[in-house]
Amino acid sequence: MHRRLLDITAGRLGTRFKNMPTLTLTTTGRRTGRQHTVVLTVPVVDGPRYLIVASRAGDTISPAWYHNLSADPSVEVSFQHGPSQPMTARVLPATEREARWPQVVQAYPGYADYQKRTARVIPLVELAPRTDY
């Protein structure tokens, strides 16, 4: 529904959610090879890099997009309904994730609640322009 709102309004509505900017992430299906696009919030913007959270609202399993980019880190990203750009996804290792988690929770305290709901450690993923890797 969020993606439809972005498309219908040409990005005039839906570029922010819960006080965070949004992006569209296109991954390649790990089993099907098909393109899949989702709209996600971005709790941390660090220049041309974006930090996203594979929370699935604290579910016991990670979202499908996370499994897809884990299998193929080459993704397409459109930040706040801007032009699409090729990026590389990198799942943060444990120590880096722990260091960055407070930034995520500061941007949206609900992420702390999501972490409390699940036994899994919610992954953080950095998206960076492909030329950076």
Rank of each mutant, 00 (worst) to 15 (best):
N68Q: 08
H36K: 09
P129V: 00
W101T: 01
R117I: 02
A94E: 13
T27I: 03
P93C: 05
T95R: 15
P123I: 09
N19Q: 15
L92D: 02
R120G: 03
E126M: 10
D72R: 08
T22D: 01
T22S: 03
D113W: 06
A128G: 09
A71V: 10
S74I: 06
T88E: 07
R117C: 05
Y114P: 04
L13W: 15
Y108R: 06
T118L: 04
T9H: 07
W101N: 03
R56P: 00
G14M: 05
Y50I: 07
T28P: 05
H67S: 11
P129Y: 01
L13D: 08
G33D: 09
I61N: 12
L6F: 04
G33I: 05
Y66W: 11
T60R: 15
D59G: 14
K18V: 11
G29H: 07
T41D: 07
R120P: 00
P48L: 03
T118Q: 01
G58P: 02
I61S: 12
L51F: 08
V77G: 01
L92F: 13
V77R: 00
L13K: 11
A94Y: 06
T37A: 06
A71L: 09
Q115R: 03
E96K: 09
V44F: 06
N19K: 14
R34F: 12
K18W: 07
T15D: 13
T32W: 06
Y108S: 04
D113V: 06
G14I: 06
R49S: 10
G47L: 05
A71T: 10
V53I: 04
D7G: 07
P48F: 01
V77I: 11
P129W: 02
A112I: 07
A89Q: 03
E96S: 07
P93M: 06
H2V: 10
Y66C: 13
G47C: 06
P21D: 05
M87V: 07
W101F: 12
L5I: 15
S70D: 04
A128P: 08
P73D: 07
A99L: 08
R49T: 10
R56F: 11
Q106M: 13
E76N: 10
V104W: 01
R30L: 04
A89F: 00
F17A: 14
A57T: 07
E98Y: 09
L5R: 14
T60E: 15
L92W: 04
Y114A: 04
V104K: 02
T9E: 03
R117S: 05
T28R: 14
V42G: 02
R16I: 06
I8T: 15
L5T: 12
L92V: 09
E96M: 08
V125H: 04
L23H: 00
L92M: 12
Y108F: 13
R100P: 00
T118C: 03
H2Q: 15
R117A: 03
S84A: 14
K18A: 14
Q106L: 06
V104P: 01
R30W: 04
F17T: 06
R120S: 03
V44W: 05
R117W: 05
G110Y: 10
S78N: 08
T24Y: 01
T22R: 00
G58N: 05
T26K: 04
R16L: 13
P86E: 08
H81Y: 14
K18S: 12
T131K: 08
L5S: 08
P129L: 00
